[in-house]
Design a protein around this nucleic acid. Sequence first.
DNA 1: GTCTATATAACGATAGAC
DNA 2: GTCTATCGTTATATAGAC
Lengths: 237, 237
Amino acid sequence: MARAQVKAEAPLQSFQEFRDRWANTIQNICLDVYNRNRDVITIKKEKVAIGNIMRIMDAVFAISREKGFHSMTLRDLSKKSGLSMGALYSYFSGKEELRAMIRRESVLYATKIIAEQIEQYRNPTDRLKAAIETHIYLSEMLKPWFYFNYMEAANLPRAEKIEAMENELATEKIFIDILGDGVKTGAFKCADVEMTAAVIKAMLQDWYLKPWKYKRKNITVEQYADFVKAFVSTAIS
Amino acid sequence: MARAQVKAEAPLQSFQEFRDRWANTIQNICLDVYNRNRDVITIKKEKVAIGNIMRIMDAVFAISREKGFHSMTLRDLSKKSGLSMGALYSYFSGKEELRAMIRRESVLYATKIIAEQIEQYRNPTDRLKAAIETHIYLSEMLKPWFYFNYMEAANLPRAEKIEAMENELATEKIFIDILGDGVKTGAFKCADVEMTAAVIKAMLQDWYLKPWKYKRKNITVEQYADFVKAFVSTAIS
DNA sequence: GTCTATATAACGATAGAC
DNA sequence: GTCTATCGTTATATAGAC
């Protein structure tokens, strides 16, 4: 088998194709935010609402990345988003609810995209590659959302923290199932599928947790995905 | 080579041996905190000071893990540590300084331990195993410190954030050097040593970032270290 | 060396004008 | 639909008694 990891493996899908396939994802998430929170959002015109929700989200992510969500004051958010304190409160009922909204909607959307992307592949080898690639591409496309959710997960209220852990285990389950199938068909040799899935998850997350590192090294998202796919393949071959 | 990852590899050192070798590490860190901050710490009796610093640290970690450092008020800290608001201010000059103290001292101590642990091994294969094992054991022994530093790194003031990134790159450099040596001697086959080091780092960090996951699976620190060592060996063989 | 009590500043949230 | 002005609360930090 010698050195499978040396030859650059071609991506199943280029990041550009993925991006085009899922264009308008952020607008759609914000639309869902609007529709699912009609009771607290007092704005009637959809166009106005979506536009402002997107500006609010952008501002939340920018400020939170700089100093954390808890350190972000609503005055910071008001200034950055261009909306007044009063206007902000017509889009969410409070700071905590704003954070919960972000997590809820992005998780729903991400789950949907992952499922749709992977279902087109059949054999374990391709499915594993697709799962790795999709997770990394998705986290690149929604990087601010993913980063925000990860960093805030630690400080959630009890009930929501449990939800977040279950969500982590659910994405891990995708890998456990694929690895399990591959072991059964003989495609993979894997000492412990659960542990393997866990470390794969850790590698996937590193892409959006430490963007500065990969920017510094001039690694593109496709290069990162290819490397992880090759590294994992070799480790389980 | 077939299935190196299947047979359980014995640890170079048991976690118990490591723990004994570095007994009193936490007291020593707190002693360093005391000595290096004599100018702001007004307490004269060393014994009293060390004891209270340790209680403060424990309380900081407990509260921060629950709801984040920024959400922790000094009233929370006062209550948990058993010291009054006034007393706390004789141990640090402010909340921000407290956070900086924790990072500074733990990084110094961790660097020292890693260097001393690895230097006893010569060939790349052993050195790689020692580096992986040491990082994981160390993060287990100082788990609250490591977790705190990681989670707060994102919200640091600019100058300190750069320091934290340089620190991450320095530990990564240890792996880059070992992998580079191994490639040269032919012990490893490695497509990209920098990327390999980066994903190894991600796997190491997962141990202290998601303790709930490994507790759930009943994975011990030795089992985790052994798994990562075997997984990486296979991936670069 | 540690405490209680309080000064001062900033926070999230809302009422009411436009 | 958005704004300004302001309320009540809570934060960090300190002064001074013990």
